[in-house]
């Protein structure tokens, strides 16, 4: 499905770090700062999962974070879309053989959009957000 010309909502995202190296974190923040400025389109990071449409997850999910990730996932209101940023969330990346991991992310919660890269560029993250918004509009269309 193509994104409609006028989005039917401003997309709010909550970022959850499940044990990432912080490379993805700074690229996510870089993606919302003035060079890219997605806030023009109403896309912004919020401080509570209850306000979010999109859950952005980074990191390979360490054991301590598994339950917290599940709890945060449940707090995001429906319809929701989950985006996994960075390769360690999709496959463990360089941390694949650690003794303290419960990942990858899609072993814990369902993931809709994967953004590969270590870390992905801000452009890639924004592209992922656009795909997530498309999926969200489709989910809403199905509900209506």
């Amino acid at each position: 499905m193509k994104l409609t010309k006028s989005f039917n909502r401003s997309l709010w995202a909550f970022h959850f770090n499940s044990g990432s190296c912080n490379g993805c974190e700074i690229e996510i923040v870089a993606a919302i700062t003035p060079r890219y400025d997605p806030e023009r389109f109403g896309i912004k990071l919020v401080g509570s999962p209850r306000h979010a449409d999109l859950l952005i997850v980074t990191g390979p999910v360490v054991k301590k974070m598994r339950d917290r990730l599940l709890r945060v996932y449940e707090q995001v209101p429906d319809p929701k879309v989950v985006m996994c940023v960075g390769v360690c969330g999709s496959s463990g990346g360089p941390f694949y053989d650690s003794y303290n991991l419960d990942g990858p992310v899609d072993d814990v919660i369902p993931v809709d959009v994967y953004v590969p890269g270590c870390p992905p560029r801000p452009e890639a993250i924004i592209y992922g957000v656009v795909r997530a918004q498309e999926k969200l509009e489709r989910l809403e269309g199905e509900r209506a």
Binding site: N17, S18, G19, S20, G59, P60, V62, K64, M65, F95, D97, S98, Y99, N100, L101
Partner: peptide
């Protein structure tokens, strides 16, 4: 600390 301990040193020794 240790909320996201990944055991990097242990992995490195392999």
């Amino acid at each position: 600390p240790g909320q996201t301990h990944r055991g990097i040193e242990w992995m490195g020794m392999r």
